[in-house]
Design a protein around this nucleic acid. Structure first.
Lengths: 223, 223
DNA sequence: GGTCAACCTTTTGTATACAAGAACTCTTTC
DNA sequence: GAAAGAGTTCTTGTATACAAAAGGTTGACC
């Protein structure tokens, strides 16, 4: 794994910036990203911008229509639910594989991470919560022993992050989430792959459901 | 779904061409792709080439090291096995979901496709075999009812295609594969998600194993 | 003779210039 | 008055020119 810090090029930095802007909702769905305008805004030429666009296209955040331009493509409720479903299944696979492969050190680390996570929930430190929660899942991915699976999970997890954020609004969800983490840990400690997979699938899938409810309530409130 | 034929730009065509060259093994692992040289070869400037490189980078076929260049990144045996493992799990999920959702028309289509596939095997028409086999799996993905899952499966399937090809060398593998397809169909017809998932997982996982054996035999033969 | 440093070459990254296609408008015709 | 078509303008796609950094080479010094 390359942890070596290599100077990143401007186009990569721009891609990250645009990604944040899109995920933050600064750009609405279907909105066209103007090359010239953004070039001025970032004080670069169109070249690095176009490179950034390509990265975003491959990430699925924008759609590039030849000779027309690039348009932001915010996933709708249906697509999001489908993405959560896939995330749940991928993580379930990780859990099943990890149940027999996980090291004691990693288990210990997951416990510690979850403790920090719980503390963050009580203290209402959302940033810490996110970091530790992410770490909890990242360890699970890694302990699957399948580096490719790990990468795919990290990719999707990152993509879903902004939408997971919405759950914060739901009362009591975080505390429930913590107990689900503990169920996962228990299954992993037992080396029970089936139980671990089921626990993880449930943990992630419920996020999709909660999200669904949230959308529904927002919609009815708007009408 | 966009089936609209839109004129593709040169950089896309070049990306496809390079992809084929890499997957065909024309470029060895670790080899550097020379921008100027390839620009001359394709009779374009460096600009579309660099765009193509980006696409390949995101597909995982090449690695781009800043200020150094792009290098082809052929997956090693370990990584390939991991990719097959993920493919097996993703397809298993498709099967589980499809078992309850699949339409009669789609089931019929899968039967027909499998029949054409079998005929192609007997007639040793490998091109037809590939097309029909691909179609068989594509229908399965689609009938999962999860468009995002479908896309991810198609992506990985495409990426693994050149390596699946190696199985042709294994005597009797194709006929076995056909009977596995029939087991999958039977489970789908029963609406038994668990059985369908198991059948699919086995069908794909065995490809990884076969591949593993093949690699081992090639290695020992080389020594 | 070996090692380190400066220079030179090669290659990547970015800017700008140019070409071609799409959209918009204004005009003309039915 | 509406619709169709030609011309203009704006935007994307590609080529070229320029800048900066990495690697190799040569020369000098220890």
């Amino acid at each position: 794994m390359y942890t070596k810090k290599m100077e990143r090029k401007r186009s990569d930095l721009i891609a990250d910036a645009l990604e944040s802007l899109i995920l933050d909702g600064t750009f609405a769905d279907g909105e066209r990203l103007d090359e010239q305008q953004l070039a001025q805004r970032f004080d670069v030429s169109r070249t690095p911008l176009r490179e950034a666009f390509q990265r975003l296209t491959l990430s699925g955040l924008v759609e590039q229509i030849p000779r027309r331009g690039v348009f932001v493509r915010q996933p709708g409720p249906v697509e999001l639910l489908q993405m959560f479903e896939v995330m749940a299944e991928l993580e379930a696979v990780c859990a099943r594989l990890a149940a027999t492969r996980i090291s004691d050190a990693a288990l210990e680390e997951m416990h510690a991470t979850n403790d920090r996570c719980k503390a963050a929930v009580e203290a209402r430190e959302t940033d810490v919560y996110y970091r530790e929660n992410r770490r909890f899942h990242a360890i699970l991915y890694h302990e699957s022993g399948n580096a490719f699976l790990e990468q795919e999970c990290l990719r999707l997890h990152k993509r879903l992050h902004p939408f997971r954020r919405m759950q914060l609004r739901l009362r009591g969800r975080l505390r429930q989430s913590m107990s689900e983490h503990e169920a996962i840990l228990a299954a992993l400690e037992d080396g029970d792959g089936t139980a671990a997979a089921e626990a993880v699938r449930n943990h992630v899938a419920v996020q999709g459901e909660k999200f669904h409810h949230l959308i529904a309530s927002l919609k009815s409130a708007a009408e």
